[in-house]
Amino acid sequence: MIRLVLLVAQKDLLIERRSRVLLWQVAPFGLMTLVLCGLAVGPTASTQARLAPGLFYIVLTLVSLLVINRTSQLESSRGTVTSIQILGMDPGSVFLGKALAMWVQLATVGSALLVGTTVLLHVSVRAAVLTLPVLLLASATLSLAGVLYGRIAASSANAGTLLPALALPAFAPVLIAGERAFSSLVVASPLARWVWLLSVALVAYASVGLLLYGALEES
């Protein structure tokens, strides 16, 4: 199973490395959105620093939509899904492999955005470094959920506009938990419950994915 997971992840990451969509389209979009957020909250550094955790997770959520859309498009060409089915690959492994590839991409963009947040929105370097494990956990949760929602929306009419309608409400807990954990680090308050919530969401999405991704592939 692990070999298959790594194989699927490697395939998606190889396509990404060759197309460079993450580097030339997704990351610039994220950084530009961060700049726009800075402009929207005004020039006061203390206000920007106070709102930075929330703005960071909003931008990360928007960026994740682009990554999900991109990942689900990889299999959108005619016959690709059928070919995967004919290969007889375990759907659970395909699900985890795709989530792993998406996690690598989201964690990479998220880290770049974290640097941007530190520079542009005046968050302390200490808080930014300490929030990195939470960012990895949040992006893993977004990736697992993203693969599922991306597959549900894929090949539907207007998939591009359908995906945000399906996924954004479900991303609310990740946004809340991530923002609260980041804010807790900024003001040095406990963050255990938010890490716990993210972990529960991660396990829930992984379980549902392992159980039901096969049904989605059939459709």
Binding site: L148, Y149, I152, S156, L166, A170, P173, A204, Y205, V208, L212, A215, L216, E218, S219
Partner: peptide, 13 residues
């Protein structure tokens, strides 16, 4: 099929 998976996912959420 897709609606059913989405409903289950929502219930978990």
């Amino acid at each position: 099929k897709r609606s059913a998976v989405f409903a289950i996912l929502t219930a978990v959420n």
